[in-house]
Amino acid sequence: MSENNVPDTGEVAVALYDVQKWFGDLHVLKDINLSVKRGEVMVVIGPSGSGKSTLCRAINRLEPIDSGRIELGGVPLPAEGKELALLRAEVGMVFQSFNLFAHKTILDNVTLGPIKVRKFAPSVAREEGLALLERVGIRNQADKLPAQLSGGQQQRAAIARALAMHPKLMLFDEPTSALDPEMINEVLDVMTDLAQSGMTMIVVTHEMGFARRVANRVVFMSDGEILEEAKPDEFFTNPVTDRAKEFLAKILQH
């Protein structure tokens, strides 16, 4: 597979049709139409407040939408309830602030979902959990509490926790913006490996190196709208809209 080419399995992992979302008077998602193919890595980029987090949260329905339709693997999102909880388990989510369960060990963080939601036997969950921690490079931290780990290690644990659910899709909401610079790469490396293993990913990030190397597509959002959708190189070298040009000029200065 050549770089940045979408493996064309033809299958759609997630699709949004005419999605609208309001917070009171604030129109945060304006008529969003988007579809991500299985195995595709999509980077979402845009100024603060443009609705990137809300988009991610809408996709696993942490945030309800006001109108439109969201389908996962061709199936519409169910309403609140057991069905929805199960569906959420199919979508892994990684947050900016890690959000590990502070009173549980790293391994327990990883095995809780598989045991309680997927109903895996604890011994199976444990074995799988340890293998996942190995994969993200923190096997030796399994019995520690989150507060004892560095930010980069905590974020890798959070990725392992999401992967333990065997998700069909992973959402990353600015996974490296809370990290000290020297820890950003260890997290991006894990995400790159994951992308190469064929995981479908939607990544909100301003890490342009990562976007260029790993993403199949970049989506630029501003004020709740998708203004541009392009291959990474195309977008970064030849942005079309003024707002994208302005935004890129700003982040390139830093």
């Binding site: 696993n60 942490l62 057991k82 909880a85 199960l86 569906l87 959420r88 388990a89 979508v91 892994g92 989510m93 947050f95 602030s97 890690f98 959000n99 590990l100 369960f101 502070a102 809780l112 979902g113 309680k116 939601v117 959070a158 926790r161 999401a162 659910m165």
Partner: peptide, 24 residues
């Protein structure tokens, strides 16, 4: 004292409200 994000993370891995309240 419990950051809101932990309850969200619990929901995101598919725990129900009762499970998240009881375990997290």
């Amino acid at each position: 004292t419990v950051p809101l994000g932990q309850a969200e993370a619990a929901r995101a891995i598919g725990l129900t409200f009762m499970q998240s309240a009881r375990m997290i």
